[in-house]
């Protein structure tokens, strides 16, 4: 394999560090999954990218899988990467990060492919969502907000990330749960926290639905107040009641997981599932999750498949309710 071309290459590129060569060569480990490619459909530095890199790190450290690479294929909230994954022959070990945002983007963007075209592997984590306002907001409790919102559905502005994303879904589900027509909801999108934070603090928008980790620092410093958390239970690090406790019949969490190209063999699939199962049992991974303010939510096999199916239906119905599609 490495006969003539490599020597020519080295002769021509003599100025290059020798140690850098052979970077794409196949590994030699005999057992388990090796040289797994994790495709991230988002730019480096984002939530999905961080998760993939942290997982790759743990997989290596705990000897679960050697040579895991993270490849970013950003575009349209993961739609571009999904399309490429679906067209992938599945010859090499490859998984793609997925989650609420990807499901949302695929539906919102009217993509010709969907997650139903992939091989579901596993869900790995859940992230609690919060309903939050500025510390000096007139809405002291969820009840205050709900009351004001019901009185003037168009006048109360909700803020969050992209249309169709987890923040958006949370707001629409909350509106529906308290009897507000989602089409009247005034949802303002902000790209990242840079403009959203001052908009909240300056009182330009009424409230935001967001992941807890994003605002953990502001919550700790007291500049942002959490009216409710959206999961089944309260968060250990946060003194805020759930939606249910406050009489709103709704639980909602953001999740993340992995899918593989369609048509891979049962054996391959089983090995990938096994890999994430081992990750799930790794104490190192549990520490990473805790540091990130995320929760382990391992699920695989038919269970995850059904879950993924339900998720896609949910997103479609939310967007349809809001009059988007």
């Amino acid at each position: 394999m490495r006969r003539l071309p490599r020597s020519v290459v080295l002769a021509v590129a003599g100025c290059l560090a020798v140690s850098a060569c052979g970077v794409t060569a196949q590994g030699r480990q005999e057992t388990g999954v090796r040289n797994l490619t994790m495709v991230v459909g988002n730019s480096p530095g984002g939530g999905y990218d961080t998760m993939a890199r942290q997982i790759a790190d743990v997989l290596g450290k705990d000897d679960i899988a050697a040579g895991t690479r993270v490849v970013n294929e950003p575009g349209a909230g993961g739609t571009v990467a999904l399309q490429q994954l679906v067209n992938d022959g599945g010859s090499r070990a490859k998984v793609m990060t997925t989650g609420v945002a990807v499901v949302g983007a695929v539906v919102t963007n009217n993509a010709p492919v969907s997650l139903a075209d992939t091989t579901p592997i596993a869900r790995v984590l859940e992230e609690p969502m919060i309903i939050a306002v500025a510390a000096d907001s007139p809405y002291r409790t969820l009840d205050d907000l709900v009351e004001a919102w019901r009185a003037d559905p168009r006048g109360i502005t909700a803020a969050g990330g992209a249309i169709g994303g987890p923040d958006y879904q949370q707001v629409m589900l909350l509106a529906k749960a308290i009897g507000i027509d989602p089409t009247t909801v005034n949802f303002v999108t902000y790209d990242g926290g840079g403009e959203l934070l001052p908009a909240i603090l300056g009182g330009k928008v009424a409230f935001t639905a967001s992941g807890y980790a994003e605002w953990a620092d502001q919550i700790a410093s007291g500049s942002i107040r959490v009216l409710a958390v959206s999961g089944e239970q309260r968060l250990s690090e946060l003194d805020a009641p759930t939606l249910r406790e406050q009489g709103v019949d709704l639980t909602y969490t953001n999740w993340r997981g992995f899918v593989a190209p369609p048509g891979i063999s049962e054996d391959k699939r089983a090995r990938l599932v096994e890999l994430f199962d081992q990750l799930h049992r790794s104490p190192e991974w549990q520490r990473v999750l805790e540091r990130n303010g995320q929760q382990d939510a391992f699920s695989a096999g038919p269970e995850f498949e059904e879950f993924l199916d339900r998720q896609q239906g949910l997103v479609k119905s939310i967007l349809a309710d809001a009059g988007l599609r």
Binding site: G75, A76, T79, V80, N109, I163, G164, L324
Partner: peptide, 20 residues
């Protein structure tokens, strides 16, 4: 690309790489 406020695509001609 995608109009952020409405989630509507403009001048993308169905090419996903143009959505951003």
């Amino acid at each position: 690309g995608l109009d952020p406020q409405s989630g509507q695509q403009r001048l993308t001609f169905g090419v996903p790489q143009l959505i951003d």
